[in-house]
Design a protein around this nucleic acid. Structure first.
Length: 276
DNA sequence: AGCCAGGACAAGT
DNA sequence: ACTTGTCATGGC
């Protein structure tokens, strides 16, 4: 990766198979917003970032090299997506999906934030998920920028009750958030081990939490624990599996099945090819 | 007005 | 083990 330090931050040549817009707006993270000038603003791991993409560069507006390195990890820029896509392209549907949205990368988000976010996502729509998470951060996070707040820790939320979250308008999900916070804080649920144990064990660990079923657990593993073998099946993926792969998904259980899932999900959901 | 939204739970077969 | 009603909230 080619890196150059500029006055305001760090500039890299755009890696192949990477689109900022596709990555930040594909339903895996809920706290990034596109600004009027086309740049993106968001936060992760208690830090604010503004970044911008052009035809062949990505600019990270941060003075600290350590922070820049953290964001490189967040965007998983060291991984060779070309090699992964080469493998998938033997399949016709995945080939078309990658033509449509091959710039998506799976972010390496904070585990707790991903867990909480996908608890909130259940039986919900993306604009409302974003609103609830925004109010959660504003109400209980730390101020880290101009009208920008960190994601509140499990320790902070474990001290609260579901009634304290009423202002979020999260509905029946509020009690699930509190249960998750308490079990993570107490150590009953150990988020550290999710990336190290067999995936079935990781699923069971997360499903100790009320409100965490197979789908939320799988999303937490994929987006928040670096488990690229995790394969979330929501209503869209269930539908597309039936339509595209009546005889079975060829990459089921494979090392990078979760990446294929994200391409197919976004393709089936947003490609004009499927608009009725 | 009723249906749906990146589901999970509890109570029924 | 599979099926069904219910759960808050808001946009369409």
């Amino acid at each position: 990766m080619h890196i150059s330090k500029t006055s305001g931050g760090f500039l890299i040549l755009r890696p192949e198979h990477f689109s900022l817009a596709e990555t930040l707006d594909c339903g895996q993270a809920f706290r990034w917003e596109k600004l009027g000038d086309g740049s993106w603003r968001g936060a992760a791991f208690d830090k604010e970032l503004i970044l911008r993409e052009t035809e062949d560069t990505i600019f990270f507006k941060t003075a600290s090299y350590d922070d820049f390195a953290m964001w490189v990890n967040y965007f998983d820029l060291e991984r060779d997506y070309g090699e992964i896509q080469k493998n998938f392209s033997s399949d016709g549907h995945l080939k078309k999906a990658m033509d449509f949205c091959g710039g998506i990368r799976i972010l390496r988000q904070d585990t707790w934030e991903a867990l909480c976010s996908f608890i909130i996502s259940q039986n919900n729509n993306i604009p409302r998920i974003k609103g609830i998470i925004s109010r959660l951060c504003e109400s209980f996070g730390k101020k880290i920028g101009d009208s920008l707040y960190s994601f509140p820790s499990a320790e902070i939320l474990a001290k609260l009750t579901a009634e304290d979250l009423a202002g979020l308008r999260a509905g029946f999900r509020a009690k699930y958030i509190i249960d998750a916070a308490q079990k993570v804080k107490s150590g009953e649920v150990n988020l550290e081990k999710l990336s190290a144990v067999p995936i079935e064990e990781a699923r069971q660990e997360l499903m100790k939490i009320k409100g965490v079923g197979p789908k939320v657990a799988e999303c937490t593993l994929l987006y928040g624990a670096g488990r690229l073998d995790a394969f979330p099946v929501d209503v869209w993926v269930k539908r597309l599996l039936g339509e595209f792969y009546p005889d079975g998904f060829p990459f089921e259980g494979s090392e990078f099945a979760g990446i294929a899932q994200q391409y197919l999900f976004h393709y089936r959901r947003f490609s004009p090819e499927f608009s009725e």
